[in-house]
Amino acid sequence: MPAGTLYRGREGMWSWVAHRVTGVLIFFFLFVHVLDTALVRVSPEAYDTVVATYKTPIVALLEYGLVAAILFHALNGLRVIAVDFWLQGARYQKQMLWTVVAVWVVLMIGALYPVLGHAVRELFGS
């Protein structure tokens, strides 16, 4: 491959990539989530059995990943709206991305105990 022909963008491109990847992941989860919720029309036992898997430590880790994807997609989506509709949006897109990342990190630290606490208690005892 000739040197220097592969486009590697900066904050703008990578946030666009992350927005796509998280969006596709969330959509696939949403599809599964509607199916599992539909089990309430089958029987309480069927629903509770499937929801029990959501409470296992491994799936709790996946839930933390889901929260990470949703929070990034939501915050960066607000940034995209600001870039499109705010007159100064394009000028401040980088600063807004780092704001998004900072808020995301804070929220992810806040979600640590509520989402993963029960898994830690189950693995290491209370």
């Binding site: 919720t37 309430v40 309480p44 629903y47 509770d48 929801v51 959501y54 409470k55 709790a60 839930e63 929260v67 979600a111 509520p114 989402v115 606490g117 029960h118």
Partner: peptide, 16 residues
């Protein structure tokens, strides 16, 4: 669903 009131642990048919 995931944060308040015990997080995911409380979810079940009765909660829905």
């Amino acid at each position: 669903q995931l944060v308040l009131d015990g997080g995911v642990s409380k979810i079940g048919f009765a909660f829905v």
